[in-house]
């Protein structure tokens, strides 16, 4: 038998070539079909990201465009208008009523929106903190209105303030008995009464 002293090398090279060709072939199959080799990412991932469901609707979703209960739509529109008038106009309904998806999903009502009447809700934004901007209204027992009515931090804010238009004082019948002055004082200064 007369074999070349390099025959094992040739065989090795063939083996390596097979490995490399196999790799190139597998790689060709494995690259995602929508791969953008210039910008180097999978274009389909953009579409996939768009599919992520939304949880927050924003105030525009509270107008009830898809809601069938006309009575409720009217009520929401009133609230929207009320909020839009007062000093809470920059707020989102979802700030206080929770995310839309917990309330309405697939255009169907799944649960009532959260209604939180605790002081914690207001104090989340209005508690006095040194770090807050000085011009932001913060709860202060010494402030004119509060000092006048001996307001403690434990006193329900909603007794006096309407959450949707806090400058305007709440005029609920049962509450107004407790704080007749507050109501009258505020209605007179503000010229607006919540109905």
């Amino acid at each position: 038998m007369n074999i070349s002293p390099r025959s094992h090398i040739y065989r090795l090279i063939v083996l390596l070539v097979i490995v490399v060709v196999g790799f190139v072939a597998v790689r060709g199959l494995a690259i995602p079909s929508s791969w953008d080799s210039e910008n180097f990412y999978r274009l389909d991932s953009l579409e996939e990201l768009k599919l992520q469901p939304m949880h927050l609707g924003g105030n525009e979703s509270c107008g009830g465009a898809s809601c069938h209960d006309q009575e409720r739509v009217a009520k929401h529109k009133t609230q929207l208008a009320t909020v839009g008038r007062g000093s809470h106009k920059g707020l989102a309904c979802e700030n206080c009523h929770g995310p839309l998806s917990a309330h309405v999903s697939d255009d169907k009502k799944v649960a009532s929106a959260v209604i939180d009447r605790e002081n914690k809700l207001c104090l989340n934004c209005h508690a006095q903190l040194v770090s807050r901007p000085k011009d932001f209204p913060q709860f202060d027992t010494e402030a004119n209105g509060h000092w006048y009515f001996d307001v403690e931090i434990t006193k329900p804010c909603l007794d006096c303030h309407s959450p949707h238009n806090p400058r305007q004082m709440a005029a609920k019948k049962d509450k107004s008995k407790k704080q007749p002055k507050a109501t009258s004082e505020q209605t007179s200064t503000n010229g607006e009464v919540q109905l």
Binding site: M1, I3, R6, H8
Partner: peptide, 10 residues
Amino acid sequence: LGVTEYTPEA
């Protein structure tokens, strides 16, 4: 790899 001779040249 099937090369079963180990020659001095190799």
